[in-house]
């Protein structure tokens, strides 16, 4: 099963790159859903011979939440806010794709520096989890629509989950479920927030949000 797990991990990297280079919101949501399912499959496939109860629980919640619930919530948010395409990100899609590759290289270098980190299965899983983490941050920083930033947030969590699964054999269930609950609430709230932003301002471009100021401050000026 070592081969299958490697294939899945490489597929996760490819999903990151696809995410960085696609402009349609719906495609992005679908990519994040597939990535969530792939990441959720990792603990089951990693040791297929001795599947523990905690691995099944963790995968189940991961796959249902990231693969089905979040995409559904975000689909609805995108539909209600009536957005289809992300505007051109800072630097363009080609540049952000190249940045994604550079981040993967940095992540690989970083994973060679961590001498005491011994992953339980594949050798590349640590670098891939860092790369996923960085990709999430890059999406949050470089995209302007609020909904894509939420997607970046989920990608970031995928990275954390992958890192946790690869290192902690026994105790990761509790931590993982707590984090999942957190992001579930966060995505839920953000979905509502996106709707309200778009209803208030006719768009969800977050650049303009930084111009909002305190009412009292405005009065003083």
């Amino acid at each position: 099963m070592i081969l299958l797990i490697d294939l899945i991990i490489v597929a996760i990297v490819l999903m990151n790159l696809m995410m960085l280079s696609s402009s349609r919101i719906r495609t992005c949501i679908r990519i994040v859903a597939v990535e969530g399912i792939l990441v959720g499959l990792v603990p089951i496939i990693a040791d297929i011979n001795s599947i523990t109860f905690s691995a099944i629980i963790s995968s189940f919640f991961n796959i249902t939440l990231k693969g089905f619930v979040f995409p559904w919530l975000l689909y609805r948010a995108a539909q209600e806010a009536n957005i289809r395409k992300e505007v051109e990100p800072i630097g363009g899609y080609a540049l952000s794709l190249l940045l994604g590759v550079i981040l993967f290289l940095i992540a690989t270098w970083l994973s060679t520096r961590l001498l005491y980190v011994k992953p339980l299965f594949s050798n590349i899983v640590v670098s891939v989890s860092f790369a996923t983490f960085f990709t999430g941050v890059l999406i949050i920083v470089s995209r302007t629509k609020a909904i894509t930033q939420v997607l970046g947030y989920i990608v970031l969590e995928n990275g954390i989950y992958l890192f946790g699964v690869s290192l902690l054999a026994e105790q990761h269930l509790l931590v993982e479920l707590a984090i999942l609950l957190d992001i579930f609430v966060a995505v839920f709230v953000m979905g509502i927030a996106i709707f309200h932003i778009s209803r208030e301002f006719d768009h969800i471009d977050t650049h303009n949000l930084s111009e909002l100021k305190d009412w009292i401050k405005l009065k003083q000026e």
Partner: peptide, 24 residues
């Protein structure tokens, strides 16, 4: 088109990096 070719470039860089890291 350059975007598609950058995808090819990205794939090849990934492949090369993976060979350096190796699998278990």
């Amino acid at each position: 088109v350059p975007h598609l070719l950058i995808v090819a470039l990205a794939l090849s860089i990934l492949a090369l990096t993976l060979t350096f890291r190796g699998f278990k």
